[in-house]
Simulated assay, not measured.
Amino acid sequence: MTKTIYRSKIDWWAWLCLLVVPVLMWFTAFDMPWWYAVFICGGLTALCFIGLFGCWYEIDGEDIVIYQFFKPTRLPISKIKDVKKTSGYLATAGMSHLRVSISFTDRSVLKSYAPIEISPKDRDGFMTQLKSINPNIEILC
């Protein structure tokens, strides 16, 4: 079994948040005790980095594994109904507005009929690899 890792595309707004939020935290902690700055601001800065770099996608045999905050969620490729390119800023497992929307045939996969949206850097390669594993997947425009 081969594993293919797709990193999440990161938009400019995510980089801006990574810059602005920690700078504001450290600036407001200027008058606080040193332990406050180290533990609170340092911890929150680390959390910002984890949020930005802790999201990626892996195709592992017959499954897609979505890592968000380093926590894996395994979804079966055999139950994918269709995939399509989409854009939006809704809160999902992605750091970009350029996304891939994945719908499943079985409601029990996500416990919902709503599709999941992810943002791999190589959207075309990702969709092509899914289609090669499960030829029944419909690729929508």
Rank of each mutant, 00 (worst) to 15 (best):
W56P: 01
M25Q: 02
L18A: 06
M32Y: 11
A37N: 07
L16W: 01
C41V: 08
C17H: 09
L24A: 10
C48H: 10
W15V: 01
E58P: 03
V23G: 01
I40C: 05
R74F: 04
R74L: 06
W35C: 04
V23D: 04
F27I: 11
Y67V: 00
D63C: 10
P33F: 06
G51I: 12
Y36P: 01
M32A: 14
L44V: 05
V21L: 07
Y36I: 05
D60W: 15
I50F: 04
W13M: 04
F30W: 12
G61V: 00
V20A: 05
L18W: 05
V21Q: 00
F53V: 03
W15A: 07
K71T: 09
W26Y: 13
C17Q: 11
Y67Q: 02
V65G: 07
K71H: 12
V20M: 00
M25S: 03
W13H: 02
I40D: 05
C41F: 07
L47R: 03
V23M: 13
G54M: 03
P33R: 04
Y36F: 12
L44Y: 15
Q68M: 14
P72Q: 02
G51K: 07
F69Y: 10
I66W: 11
G42D: 05
C55M: 15
C17R: 03
L52S: 10
D63Y: 15
I50G: 08
A14Q: 13
L44Q: 07
T28S: 07
T73F: 14
L44M: 14
C41L: 06
I40N: 02
C17V: 09
Y67D: 04
V20P: 00
T45Q: 01
W35R: 11
I64N: 07
M32L: 12
D60H: 13
A37Q: 11
D63P: 03
G61W: 03
L24T: 07
D63N: 14
L47F: 14
W26E: 00
F27T: 12
T73I: 09
